[in-house]
Design a binder for these strands. Structure first.
Lengths: 354, 354
DNA sequence: TTTTAAAATGTGTACGCACACATTTACTTT
DNA sequence: AAAGTAAATGTGTGCGTACACATTTTAAAA
């Protein structure tokens, strides 16, 4: 028959104490005699007590406030996806008394990042999810969080020195290697490969350079073809941007283009299409609506999915697990480097959860 | 400030009735006067009541038994993974009074399938997760389940006529197309492609033929190269098996091999390695340990991940959502067709959840 | 020894819902 | 009009835990 789950009450009975004492031992709230402690721990070692999380959550009846700090979703469809993940998490956890509040900063403005973070800190939430896109500005912020004992989870960009509760994202070096692998596939002629960092804030490319490093590493180690790999930092706002790009495309030896950002992928695709160079292998990032169109039409050959939506929603889940369920969270949750092609893209769009 | 969630009690107060009446209306347990019903529904339309699932589950205090019917994991590492998914679900839900019991049948024995299913039916579980690998034997079983009102979820193999609570798996036609795409990538010489169904029970290949259909469809539609596509049903237990395979590999025009099963992928890889034909493109299924070795060494070029473990664990979750949380479950949950390569395989192994 | 405070332990209520059961109301039947 | 019955409605307890508070025990101080 069904083995009844062991309850605190059962432990109390077995140890010959009251539930209050067991509770104090379990959560070490002090005020327990050595003998009682011994009796309870003895029982605990014998049996496998698994607290009923439902009852725990219901009983504790706490309202937690979680703050999510990320760039303005209106500036970039990538962050719009992240923001959707937050919204999803909001709905999911609302009924458990968890309030998720969004704090946005300007993607291009380091000052705005700092100010937003400070504003969040003043609000003293119970947990923080943050995309620390500005390395230098982020460090003192983490210091603040730690001083006030607010647990925080990083996503998208890893800063190990931050010692966060956990980091959610991808291994960027490996991501670059996957990009290179997809670029290399079936190539059989020598030529040029271009790595493009298309971003409005070139400064912040530490993050992107990691992908490039992986890309180059792969070709050094693995490829049978000795490609000429060139890289460019491009700002689409720059008036000479399209000319630069055009010059690149006029090179008849150009075999492929690897773009390190999701927005940049769409930009690159549009120009490649405009100049009719669909023969060039184009590898980029993320299932933005625009990118999907170019993937389907064959301008983009591969996308590497960073799954921003899920990164964000899982970040909130990690915080909830920590705050409410007192569950341990993995210190790093590295997402798989999903390869999206013309043929499997539909299967990714269909399944909501994954 | 935090908006308190609306409780049944609140609805009762607003409608001027007792919680009992509200409860009866919400779950239409009858015995409610038209006036009371009207009053409560009026309130319900005004407000957005979201029942607290924690309290609901805790309060109902039911013990559900779920039966999982699948092939013996010892016969095939693919099913061993599924079985792991069940074990995981067992642990996850045990504390909520949900008992998951495993019922195994012989992968090669239709009779065993039937008997196991009947045995499960006699036990009258509250829900059933089943991998209906034998189409004809499965149909009358579903009839039984439906007669006794036991909700059942299909995984791995879809049988739409079964009208299950939900189906969890992949689109096999699309899966074949993805296989073809990976096969076609970078090929630039005419030649032969082989589709291999390596299975001990050739009869049951309806399921596998769907993949082949997708494979051929892709080449008809998309490929610039006019490949000669041949297919074989092979039984590794057959004494002539290796000879057959050897003959195939001796064809210098052979460009690629697509294997429709996970176990078969490993078998094919071992023979290809033995005869030193690593130049041949090999596309197969699933992250079995053996397959991972061949992928890393380059014998296997691509794997399509069917995620059997997650299919199983999610199947149980769907049943739990239906039984315990009374949540609607999607009628089909099609998993993404994940492409595994040498470079992204680690990222899949690392992340536990995905 | 008695008093007093602190430490240890036990008890009771709340969390939101489900459900069994008690009570009230409305309607027949005699 | 009284009794009887079924329908309608309300009340109370339990689920397993957290936590505030009451009670008991212990040890130190008078």
């Amino acid at each position: 028959m069904v083995e009844k789950n062991i309850r605190i009450k059962d432990i109390a009975r077995l140890a010959g104490v009251s539930v209050g004492t067991v509770d104090r031992v379990l959560h070490n709230r002090g005020r327990v005699s050595p003998e009682a402690l011994q009796k309870v721990t003895a029982v605990m070692e014998q049996i496998d007590y698994k607290p009923n999380l439902l009852a725990r959550t219901l009983g504790s009846n706490k309202n937690y406030r979680i703050a999510a700090i990320l760039p303005d979703p209106n500036q970039d469809p990538y962050w719009a996806q992240s923001s959707l993940g937050i919204t999803q998490a909001q709905l999911e956890w609302a009924q458990y008394g968890i309030q998720v509040e969004l704090f946005l900063f300007d993607l291009l403005d380091r000052d705005s990042f700092q100010k937003t973070a400070h504003r969040v800190h003043l609000a003293r939430p119970d947990g923080i999810l943050i995309a620390p896109t500005f390395y230098h500005e982020a460090l003192p912020i983490f210091e603040l969080f730690r001083e006030t004992d607010i647990p925080f989870v990083l996503f998208n960009t890893n800063i190990p020195e931050a010692k966060p509760l956990s980091f959610i994202g991808q291994n960027l070096l490996q991501s670059g290697r996957v990009g290179a692998e997809l670029m290399n596939l079936g190539q059989h002629e020598k030529g040029t490969l271009a790595v493009l960092h298309i971003d409005e804030d070139i400064q912040d490319s530490v993050h992107l350079l990691e992908k490039e490093r992986g890309f180059r590493e792969y070709f050094k180690e693995k490829s049978k073809i000795d490609f000429d790999i060139v890289d460019f930092n491009m700002n689409p706002k720059d008036p000479s941007f399209e000319d630069q790009f055009k010059t690149l495309l006029e090179d008849k030896n150009l075999r492929g283009v690897f773009v390190s950002t999701s927005k940049g992928t769409a930009v690159a695709a549009s120009i490649i299409e405009k100049y009719g160079r669909e023969d060039i292998r184009l590898v980029g990032y993320d299932m933005l609506e625009e990118n999907l169109r170019y993937l389907k039409s064959g301008v983009i050959d591969f996308l590497i999915n960073q799954n921003p939506k899920r990164q964000a929603s899982l970040g909130i889940s990690h915080l909830v697990n920590h705050l409410m369920f007192k569950k341990g969270t993995p210190s790093t949750d590295l997402f798989p480097l999903e390869v999206i092609t013309q043929q499997n893209v539909e299967s990714y769009l269909g399944s909501g959860i994954h």
